[in-house]
Design a protein around this nucleic acid. Structure first.
Lengths: 185, 185
DNA sequence: CTCGCCATCTTGTCAACGGCAAGTTAGGCT
DNA sequence: AGCCTAACTTGCCGTTGACAAGATGGCGAG
């Protein structure tokens, strides 16, 4: 039981991360304010610094969380098409994590924890590509992986940016499935 | 001749936009400071506000410039493969513009000028897809356009984020060409 | 049981920033 | 010559991230 008020706060670190996700989802990472997070948690403006050092530290923790969530989602997927849809679902459903993960100027991308988590996600992605039934002709698995990653990442990014035309429809997963299939024709 | 010191500055607006591109290329849009731009131009800290209203106004102007640059690059391309490579070349060569264009929370995306410029770029993109030789089977041009846009946008984004593994090589255009070809197999 | 340690959190301060208001300068037009 | 207005300046306010130094309280050693 990581209660509300164990000694000082109880679980400030977790509370700050949760508030950060909320704030970033609403207004983007640029608008994130450590002081605002502190206010939401009912602590002083300098409390967050103790847990994360600085803003980049908090976002680094968020990136780690994100890469692990993504790795989990990819591992649960079946074939490569499923994995692609899962990637898009992750991006749309965990917008805050996703936006931070791929904006390396916001956090410490060489942090060992984040490097390890990124590697776990990368491995899950490559496993999906390796499981593709090959029709023999061109075994450039590297280019296949890059193409698959690019198409789902691009679709997710464009969706989140609101750049896609209205006729794409309201359901990102359905639209993504149609798009990803274009890679396999 | 839009000289250096015509009356007050000469061409502050243009100078600010140029400095902004430089600053964003170096440190990302989040680190952009109007006051820093003013210092670089040798004017007071409030001068930029006169030309752009606020930070979002400056970035709106930058987005317009970017969409027009992109539209031009796409129009000059030959077939769809060329256009895809041109898209990636634009993203890498005009990183600052590209990053702002697809981060709508940074600027006024409903600004009429930016909407018009975005539409010009979109038209250029769709023209490339329409020129694709069709083999008849499935004439879903919408999904084709979305797939093409997604794969080049995803590749460009991942490249800029530094997310691609080192074995991708140092040349984004060559790698992009290999990846885009995967769509046409 | 008490004493001291140390992670946790607070208070106070600083420079930098975006934005606003009010004043000043200077080109151009009548 | 005289004014009009765009272009820029000066001064200010509230907010932010970061840092330093102090307060609080749980917990283990003796």
């Amino acid at each position: 039981m990581t209660g509300q008020r164990g000694y000082h706060h109880g679980d400030l670190r977790r509370a700050l991360l949760a508030s950060a996700v909320e704030a970033i989802t609403e207004a983007g990472p640029a608008a994130l304010s450590l002081r605002d997070l502190a206010r939401r948690a009912g602590v002083s403006h300098a409390a967050p610094a103790h847990h994360f050092g600085d803003k980049a530290g908090l976002l680094t923790a968020l990136a780690v969380e994100g890469f692990d969530l993504l790795a989990g989602a990819l591992r649960e997927a079946g074939d490569l098409l499923d994995a692609g849809v899962a990637y898009v679902r992750f991006a749309v459903g965990h917008r805050a994590h996703f936006e931070v993960m791929f904006r390396p100027e916001l956090y410490r991308r060489d942090d060992p924890e984040v490097a390890a988590a990124r590697e776990r996600a990368g491995a899950a992605l490559r496993a999906g590509v390796a499981a593709l039934p090959r029709d023999g002709t061109d075994p450039d698995e590297e280019a296949d992986a890059l193409a698959a990653w690019s198409i789902v990442h691009g679709f997710a990014t464009l969706w989140l940016a609101g750049a896609l035309p209205p006729r794409t429809g309201p359901d990102p997963e359905a639209a993504a499935r149609k798009v990803i299939r274009r890679l396999f024709d």
